[in-house]
Simulated assay, not measured.
Amino acid sequence: MIVMDEIGRQVELSLEPASLAQRKATLGIGDSSAVSATRARALAEDAFFHPSIMSISHASVEHYYAIYTPFFAPVCLHVLLAAIKELKRYRVERAKHSAFQAS
């Protein structure tokens, strides 16, 4: 994956307030440390969500099918079998009810 120089600069810019927040936290300056940490996070998120990276980081639909099918196929099979079983039971009970009402 090719990372643009602009993204690298954004990451470097986020490291400065992050280290400043760490130093201030070590000294016990909590409020100022929180402000610096918030700034560092905002800059890091700007780099992470840069449009040139977002197109690369999203997987295709086929990828999601390949990943999640082994998890959901067994569950769906059991749900489908249970639904068929309940449908058969419903038909039998409906036939019994109809026969009861007829007599």
Rank of each mutant, 00 (worst) to 15 (best):
S33R: 03
D31Y: 10
I67A: 09
Y90P: 00
S19L: 15
E86D: 12
K96W: 09
E45S: 04
T69Y: 07
R41A: 08
L43F: 00
G30L: 13
Y65R: 05
L20K: 12
Q22Y: 07
S57N: 13
P17I: 03
H50N: 11
A102M: 07
D5S: 13
I67G: 00
R23G: 03
P51Y: 00
Y65H: 04
A99P: 00
L15R: 11
S57L: 15
M4I: 10
R9F: 07
S36L: 12
E86Q: 12
A82W: 09
A25D: 06
K96M: 09
A18S: 08
I84H: 01
L13E: 15
V11T: 04
M1T: 13
E16C: 06
P51G: 01
E6T: 12
H97S: 13
R94M: 13
A59K: 15
I56A: 14
I56V: 15
S98M: 11
R94H: 08
P70F: 04
A95T: 03
M4S: 15
D5Y: 01
I53W: 08
I2S: 14
T69G: 01
R39T: 11
A34K: 11
S57K: 12
C76D: 12
D31T: 09
M1R: 09
A99M: 05
E45K: 05
M4C: 10
H50Q: 01
S19H: 11
A18K: 03
T26R: 14
S103P: 03
T38R: 10
A66C: 02
S14N: 04
S32V: 13
F71I: 11
E45N: 07
Q22H: 11
Q10H: 06
R89H: 09
V92K: 09
Q10F: 02
A42L: 06
A73L: 10
T26K: 13
E6L: 10
R23I: 06
A47S: 02
P70M: 03
A21S: 09
V61T: 11
M1L: 14
A59P: 03
D46M: 06
H78M: 13
K96A: 11
T38C: 05
I67Y: 11
A102K: 14
I84Y: 01
Y64S: 06
R9K: 15
R39M: 11
A47C: 01
E62I: 02
T38Q: 10
Q101K: 14
K85Q: 09
S55Q: 12
L80Y: 10
D46I: 01
R39H: 07
A37M: 04
E45I: 02
R9C: 05
S14I: 02
G28Y: 01
D5A: 13
E16L: 15
S98A: 13
S60I: 01
H58S: 14
L13G: 02
A40I: 01
E62R: 03
A59F: 08
